[in-house]
Design a protein around this nucleic acid. Sequence first.
RNA 1: UGGGGCGUAGCCAAGCGGAAAGGCACGGGGUUUUGGUCCCCGGAUACAGAGGUUCGAAUCCUCUCGCCCCAGCCA
Length: 560
Amino acid sequence: MPSDSVTASNFIREIIKDDVKNNKNDGKVYTRFPPEPNGYLHIGHAKSICMNFGFAEDFNGLCNLRFDDTNPVKEGAEYAESIMNDIRWLGFEWEDRLFYASDYFDKLYEFAIDLIKKGKAYVCDLSADEIRNTRGTLKEPGINSPYRDRSIDENLDLFKRMRSGEFENGTRVLRAKIDMASGNLNMRDPVMYRILHATHHRSGDKWCIYPTYDFTHGQSDSIEGITHSICSLEFEDHRPLYDWYIEQLEIHHPQQIEFARLNLNHTIMSKRKLRELVEERYVDGWDDPRMPTLCGLRRRGFTPTAIRNFLTRIGVAKRNSVVDVAMLEHCLREEQNKSAPRRMAVLNPLKVVIDNYPDDLTEEMEAVNNPEDASAGIRKVPFSKTLYIERDDFMEDPPKKFYRLAPGREVRLRYAYFIKCEDVIKDETTGEVIELHCTYDPASRGGNSPDGRKVKATLHWVSAEHAIDAEVRLYDHLFSKEDPLEEEQGSNWKDNINQSSRVILNTCKLEPSLKDVSVGYFCQFERQGYFCVDLDSNANKLVFNRSVGLKDEWLRMQNK
RNA sequence: UGGGGCGUAGCCAAGCGGAAAGGCACGGGGUUUUGGUCCCCGGAUACAGAGGUUCGAAUCCUCUCGCCCCAGCCA
């Protein structure tokens, strides 16, 4: 953990700190994470999760998990399962504090009756279209519903009949009687209850009227005794409405605090658009390693620690912003550099024969498992006459700054020997380099020459006869544009998908120690990046995902 | 003057009247059997702009400009 993780201050933490100091709410801190069970969590949600659970932890309080399930036609239990799984994976626990807004349907109904009795709510027979047409515009006030002044008794009677199923969907709603001329559209007699003859994933067919989110959310927080209701910026102008309900109802008043949600460049965070990518098969599923979903990031090899460090570093404020994904990638590298075991793997193999090496000899070379962690120990890697090296590590006609292998040049094979390239074999028809012939210096065993001569490069390698075959999937940004929604004339945001966001390599050669590795195994392939075993792996096929590449100065020079 | 927010380096972001933290990215140098890691060094005469208050302002006041959100019986 970076040292800033504990001290990182932000305006919400300051507010809470002050409240605790002033003994507001008896000095208690109670938060909640309120997802709607209608999709998968992404890293933007993780920001909210980390804040809500994190503040509770930091201030000795509690955090509830509450599903805001007020819309039976869109929600389902299968989503709730995945959401709980992702929150636990991030490292948070709600113990026995799992709630559903639907648990409060009875209470909410009583609240509605209460407001009717206070003359603060009425049943409106206008259709959805009519309500919209009488709401006014951003600059002009709305006009009162003709049903606005019904008697309390009539409202009570009608609302009860709405509940008993007497009316069709959409024929009537219960509305709050506030102010059709308010500059805040949310206050123009908002709908509290709508008729929905639909089966709810928890309450079944008990109800045929359902409260709207606006009539549910604030009171749910109130019922749970939440002290700090943290939510995103777009709910800022709903706050006056939530406050209004709570004041009319005379119930506990949580303090709502809004923050700017997370945006990352080269990807999208819209649930609707992510769904579109999945359903139209632009990606392989919600857990495709290119997705910003938590299950996607997990499959890609991102860890809870890396994600949480990242979220701590970017802070929280009210300014709309777009964070560079390089920051997220940095956090994974930072963590894994310290802990990931190092292994050698050749992704694009080029055959190398050491002409002066004995035909049948195999030597076991000692390799360090992690130079950042001596306790990780060492392992043996077999070396023999025929090897594979990375195609990119050889150039027949190298430019000035290239200091890897080239004709006549000597380099080091990591933990093995110095080798010198003596001959280049090419395919006669294509001209492609297919094999290199080298000689080795037996005195350089282990990687250093007793005469003290230096080489400019150290290459990773794998012994051909001992190598394991594997598939490796390389990932890059899902969208080539920083802002995927930036559309050119006649194009659509999906045209911005990076065509090479996934590159599959089928002929990779791994060092034999990787033989029995299983799903989730994580390591660094030296000089290349961090990789993890994908769940597509099985007994006869190993599949690795590249989580993130190492920083690569040579690559950067070439791109200049 | 519809309402509500926000404007500090390329990207995030501290700062709360005493005089610009930190991270990422970027550039330079050193170490190095990963062109990795690590270690140095480099950046805003300046905080959207203009006025004003003050001994002193990114921080207070005024005006201007720019960006975001709101017209679902979605959340």
